[in-house]
């Protein structure tokens, strides 16, 4: 269940940050398309969060599995300020556990909030902070650790 791509989407739906584990040209473009297409599902889920349905906890930020494709699974997370985090993981036969994904997202959210507190960062611009990059690298490492556990 190794994460292969992390994306941060702003509230106007353009990417603030998109990084894949192996930055090759071809694959990167594919991730761009994939993440962009998954925003559709995010929007749908966010709009239905307003009306709590049975079984769905309305107090959650975590949106769950957005789009299961053959190679990758896409997970989403939406914050209060309409900033969305998208995580793309490799599709293996093992069952992905929600708790692990939630933990990864939590780390990402904390890293994002930290970066936001930086007075030199203007909200709405591309994220270039090195600390954030390091945090994302550690998320990649952590997700690899999940695979090796199984």
């Amino acid at each position: 269940m190794a994460a292969v791509c992390v994306a941060v989407i702003s509230k106007q739906n353009f990417p603030l940050y998109l990084r894949s584990v192996n930055p090759q040209n071809e694959a990167d473009l594919q991730f761009q398309y994939l993440v962009h297409a998954s925003i559709d599902v995010v929007e749908e889920k966010v709009s239905t969060l307003g009306t709590p349905k049975a079984g769905q906890d309305p107090r959650e930020h975590y949106l769950g599995l957005l789009y299961p494709s053959e190679q990758y699974k896409v997970y989403g997370y939406a914050t209060n300020t309409r900033v969305k985090f998208i995580l793309v993981v490799e599709n293996t036969t093992s069952q992905s556990r929600d708790t692990e994904m939630k933990m990864l997202f939590k780390n990402l959210h904390v890293a994002y909030a930290d970066m936001l507190c930086n007075p030199f960062y203007t909200p709405g611009q591309k994220i270039t902070s090195r600390t954030f990059n390091n945090a994302v690298s550690s998320i990649f490492q952590m997700s690899k650790g999940f695979t090796s556990k199984e």
């Binding site: 398309y33 994939l34 962009h36 297409a37 925003i39 559709d40 599902v41 749908e44």
Partner: peptide, 13 residues
């Protein structure tokens, strides 16, 4: 049918 505009764009590409 599901108004997935972005998915449709990807497919159109």
């Amino acid at each position: 049918n599901h108004n997935s505009e972005r998915m449709i764009s990807h497919l159109k590409v």
